[in-house]
Design a protein around this nucleic acid. Sequence first.
DNA 1: TCGTAAAACCTATCATACAGGTTTCAGAAG
DNA 2: CTTCTGAAACCTGTATGATAGGTTTTACGA
Lengths: 236, 236
Amino acid sequence: MLEPQGQIRSDYVGGAVTAIARLIRDRDLKPGDRLPAEGTLSKELQVSRTVIREALRSLAALHLVQLGAGKRPTVAQLDDDAFSLTIEHGVVTDQIDIQQIYEARRTIEARTAALAALRRTDAEARAISAHARAMLERRNDPRKVMEHDIALHLAIAHASCNPLFALIIGAFGGVTRQTWPIGWKSRTSDDERQAMSELHVAIADAIAAGEPTAAARLMDEHFDQSIKALLRAGLI
Amino acid sequence: MLEPQGQIRSDYVGGAVTAIARLIRDRDLKPGDRLPAEGTLSKELQVSRTVIREALRSLAALHLVQLGAGKRPTVAQLDDDAFSLTIEHGVVTDQIDIQQIYEARRTIEARTAALAALRRTDAEARAISAHARAMLERRNDPRKVMEHDIALHLAIAHASCNPLFALIIGAFGGVTRQTWPIGWKSRTSDDERQAMSELHVAIADAIAAGEPTAAARLMDEHFDQSIKALLRAGLI
DNA sequence: TCGTAAAACCTATCATACAGGTTTCAGAAG
DNA sequence: CTTCTGAAACCTGTATGATAGGTTTTACGA
């Protein structure tokens, strides 16, 4: 192992990826707009269709373009899927731990709660409250509680009127589905579980009432308790 | 257009992607570990090498695996590249605007500054201070000031001891390089520009001194001024 | 034991083929 | 003149085979 391992000399695929990304920018394409067909790109960029396909697959994995049998590639809507996979990979390969995820969520969600209180529409406030109430009502069906929990946090992020927050919070959904049951089990008594749901109701109320400080404080409290529950379970 | 456009019937590539991702998880592979060769995967999953290659390209785009000519695919280190491309795509296609990015950064970086003040090593504190001082010294070379600015923020994120923060802040680097010059130009006087750099020095000092509240407050102030500068420039 | 060169292995790219999905367009029907 | 329809043209998803050139392993000789 003497050689300092050289670069890949000819990375046609990488070149095609940046060429296509630049094409989206230069032609000012927006979500839904169609890109040139594989054959066309192949001729224009002077590489085989194989290379173009692998480049398009790369962009599709990142959700920058969307592919479909028979259809020409289209520019894609913003999506949290790519970031979600990055995070899951980090967790699976021990590069990120659960506590770090909660620390990040706590930071971001205290803000989304405050912003939602300031910016939410009435419809959004109703949707958030509905999820909180559903958590209380479905208290015997953990799976449902979890889904409403996740949906509530995402709804708050959307109500913050910042798609970047929605993107990040949405991306946490994947790992949350894997860790949420741990937190649920660590809350052994029904009272404790109900308290968690009631805290969500309180957050929803603060957002509906347009009280940013209270919303942020309650959200922070929620994460405080969640982290404590996970620590008590000895699982983080 | 009567049909409600059906699903892709046979998505071999998608299947291969999840199969390979599951393989990483099930075999408990860590960064650097080698995956089976394309030919092997092709046989095991009963699809052509074409499909396997496109699946591996997808995973490589997400930085879950790393590819190299002649080398077998390896599990990849966590990387902000995929998220960075997502964000840039959002900006280029008008799905995210600059102000929203600053709002997110402000939220996150007030926290990373506080955490860095609590957790930084001495070496990290020195590195952060070095970037801040370099910003002052190189004040006549905007390009250099920008690079030290970006590096400083990323160094703070690393010092926060949460790789997730480092990932997110790192991902913002790409768009920052495109918007930073706007902020610089909007600060017309030398005094104003120097004040910006001095604020970075103050942040670095607070982190070095282990003062989380001060670090967070200064960071918030920094973003406050940056957003004002951009608004004044009329560009967001 | 150690180093080295050949052998085996592997990936990157290209060309070609075909099944089946999608879009377009001309012509028929109203 | 408009609307519908079906065929034609277009396009993607997958498979196979081939070759250049990079990497890892192996076996041999010093």
